[in-house]
């Protein structure tokens, strides 16, 4: 819980400073827009966080989002599939890919980094090939306005992606922090061998985390596709996996596995998006965007290390 409090404070300070420097930050338009971003990035970050908690990693998120976006546009505007079927396909495909990743990782004992790195390359290539490198859009959404409104609309004044994130985060909170499966995830991440010795099917636990990550990536993918409304297969979703990893790490997930919380991942995502917003609002050269983000993650991780070392020292003295 301490970690969550720490970055919450950081988030709050950042918001306060930004507001002081540029009051536009708390304008309804800006807040709505930031919430929208947090929603889209947060959903796949939750899945990625789950994978990281098992001690794995998923680098294929961005490419999956591109592939989903391209296919979704084609399914709706070129093949004229019913919107429900297309949406289902856009979620099921990443789940299937997640299953393939999980199976290869647990059965063939290949490192998650390598498997999902291959995924990153393969799905990006496929997306570009299928689209013939053409940017895909959704036109005026004839026949699937419902889906578009569900992805881009508002509920109670809140952008839909943000509402979805809150609902999914609530579900995932129960899954990770209150369910049997969640306990197994944390146990596997900390000590797979001892978990196996307790009669738990550790392979299934690990593999399923990639399927869940796939599902959440698919949902994000639909949201991103409608948000941009033009899916350019060569750069749509680029680097998104790194946003997810950064959010999870900022939020207290350890890449060694076994540690992390849903709340932490949420705050981590929010922190990254507020940072982006800050760069825009304060008129900092947008080319510095990544540099700012990298610096903040670095500071966050360093600070955490310092606090941990201090806590350990305190413990030793007792």
């Amino acid at each position: 819980m301490k970690k969550e409090i720490g970055i919450s404070v950081l988030l709050f300070v950042l918001c306060a400073v930004t507001t002081l420097l540029n009051p536009k930050f708390i304008s309804p338009v800006n807040l709505t827009n930031t919430a929208n971003q947090i929603g889209m990035y947060g959903i796949f970050s939750l899945g990625l966080g789950l994978v990281i908690i098992t001690g794995g990693i998923d680098l294929s998120v961005g490419s999956m989002i591109a592939l989903c976006g391209v296919l979704l546009s084609m399914m709706l505007t070129e093949w004229h599939w019913p919107w429900s079927l297309a949406a289902a396909a856009a979620v099921l495909l990443p789940m299937l890919l997640g299953w393939v990743h999980g199976t290869l990782i647990t059965r063939m004992k290949i490192q998650p980094f390598i498997i999902t790195l291959c995924g990153l390359l393969i799905y990006r290539g496929l997306a570009r090939f299928i689209a013939r490198d053409d940017t895909k859009g959704f036109g005026n959404a004839e026949g699937f306005a419902i889906l578009r409104d569900a992805a881009k609309g508002k509920l109670l004044g809140l952008p839909m992606p943000f509402v979805l994130l809150i609902i999914l985060a609530l579900i995932m909170w129960f899954v990770l922090h209150r369910s049997i499966y969640g306990r197994y995830l944390l146990a596997v991440g900390r000590n797979e061998e001892a978990t196996r010795f307790s009669g738990i099917n550790t392979r299934r636990v690990i593999a399923s985390s990639y399927i869940i990550a796939g599902m959440l990536t698919g949902i994000s993918g639909i949201l991103f596709a409608f948000y941009t409304n033009s899916v350019s297969p060569s750069n749509h979703g680029n680097f998104y996996e790194l946003y997810g990893i950064a959010a999870a790490v900022l939020g207290g997930c350890s890449l060694r596995g076994g540690e992390g919380s849903i709340l932490g991942i949420l705050i981590g995502t929010a922190l990254l998006q507020v940072l982006q917003n800050l760069v825009n609002l304060l008129g900092i050269d947008s080319s510095l965007n990544y540099a700012v983000m990298g610096t903040v993650v670095l500071i966050g991780v360093l600070a955490d290390q310092v606090f941990q070392a201090r806590a350990a020292k305190k413990l030793m003295r007792h």
Partner: peptide, 17 residues
Amino acid sequence: GEGLVVGMTVRENVTLA
């Protein structure tokens, strides 16, 4: 290495199986 998940609590270890 095999008997305990040492990073977890006594409660979580006792009930894991």
